[in-house]
Design a protein around this nucleic acid. Sequence first.
RNA 1: CGGGGUGUGGCGCAGUUGGCUAGCGCGCCGCGUUUGGGACGCGGAGGCCGAAGGUUCGAGUCCUUUCACCCCGACCA
Length: 421
Amino acid sequence: MKMTQLFTKTSKTVPADETSKNAKLLIQAGYIHKEMAGVYDYLPLGLRVLENIKQIVREEMNAVGGRELIMSNLQRPELWMETTRWDDKVVDIWFKTKLQDQTEIGLAWSHEEPIMDMMQHFVQSYKDLPAVVYQFQTKLRNELRAKSGIMRGREFVMKDMYSLHVSAEDLDTYYNKVIEAYKRVYERLGIGKDTYVTFASGGAFTKFSHEFQTICDAGEDILYLHREKNIAVNEEVLDEAVKELGVNKDEMEKIKSAEVGNVFNFGTDKSNAMKIYFTGKNGEQLPIYLASYGIGVTRVMGVIVEKFADDKGIVWPEAIAPFKIYLARLGDEADVVKAADDAYKRLTDAGIEVLYDERDARPGEKFADADLLGIPYRLVLSAKTLAEGKCELKRRTETDTVLLTIDEVTKKIAVGKGTLV
RNA sequence: CGGGGUGUGGCGCAGUUGGCUAGCGCGCCGCGUUUGGGACGCGGAGGCCGAAGGUUCGAGUCCUUUCACCCCGACCA
C-alpha cells in the first residue's frame, strides 16, 4: 500500500486522555481511533494486524477440527433465563435493549447459551458428537469501568470456541488437544515464551479452569509461577491450587500478567440447565458435555504492543505486522522515484507486503514514522543508495543497516528469519 | 458505584485578582527555498472556550446543575 493512499496519519503528540502504552501508541500511529471510553475503531492498519492475528488463530482452530461460524449479536432473554444468567444480579455486564414492540433483547456478551440452543437443532444423537464450533465475534460488555486501552474495552473481538461431547473422557481428551493448539497460537503470535497455562477458578464442574496468562506489566492478574516445575497459578486460587498440586508457595515467583485466553469445562451443567440432551446407543436421553475456549483477539494485540514497544514506538512480531517492509523513498529526483516505484512493484509482485512511503516528506519524518508504526523492516531508497544500484535494509529492532539489491531483499525477506549481515 | 482529576480549533497546551477583536506550538492551505533522523521564510484558513442555567455593566475565568474523559478502588475475557 502507498502511504498517500492511506488516509490515516501519525501524530507527533500523544493523546492526553490515554495512559496505557498500547492505546497511546496505537492511536498516535493511526492504528485505532477512540470512540468513547473502552470503545475503539480499528483503522486500516489496525485491521490488518487484527486479521493477521485472527488468521493464526483460525488455522489452529481448524487444525483441531473447529468449524467456523458466526452467531448473532442480538440475543433472546429466554435462553439466558434458563440458566439464571439474564438476571442483572447474576451477570452485571449486560447491555439490554428493546425491539420496537417492546420485546426485550440482550446484546451478546457471551454466546454459551445461544450456542447450546443453536446446536441442539443439529445434535440429537451420539452419532452427531463430538461437535466443535467457533467464531470471531464482537462481544459487548457493560463494564463498570473500561481501562488499559484495548486490553479491556466495552466492545472487543474474541474468538470463542465450543466443543460438545458424549462423555467426560471424550471432553478431557479434546480439551487437552485445544490446550496444545492454544500453545501453538501464542507461539506463532510471538508471545509463547512468556505465556503460561495457568490454574484459575473453575466453577461447578471442575476444580480449576485453565487460563493462558502472558507476563505483562500492564496486565490485571497476578500470577504465581514455579519455573522449575512449569506450573503457573492465578492468585485467585493460589492456596487451593498449591495444596492440590503439591508445590511450595515459597518457591513461586509473583508476576503481573494479562489473561490472553481461557479454556473452561462446563461438564453437563449447561446441558442440564437448558434441558438439551442427546440420544445414546441404547436410546436413552443423555446430557451433553460442554467446554468453551476463548482468546481475546483485540486484547492480545494490546498485550503485544505493551510487551515489545520501545521508546521509538511499536514493534510488531513479523507474523502479525500490518506490513513486512516500510519502503522509504528519500528525495524526488526522477531516477530515485523510478527506482523506488520499481522496487515497490517488484517486492509486491513477489508477495511481500510493503508500505510504500512516497510522501513528499523529509527523511527524519519518514524514519520516525517507520519506527512508530513498528514495521519489521525498513528499506530506504535514495540517490545515495541508487548510486550503487542498491537499497538499504534495516530491521526495526536493530541499528545496523545493509546495502542490498532488490533481488537480494526479496530473497532475504521471503525466506524470513535470517540475520541481516 | 465510591474517591480524586480534567474538559479552550484536528492534536498538545497557555489564558493573572472577571475587562477590550481568545493566544501559542504541531498539523492544515498557498508560494518559495530545502531533503539521510520529525527543515525554514512569507502569506492564509480554522475555535465562542463540554452543555444548560444563573450572578454581573461585562464570564474561558465566579455560582448551580449536567454530560464526557482519565486515574485509584470494587468487578471482570
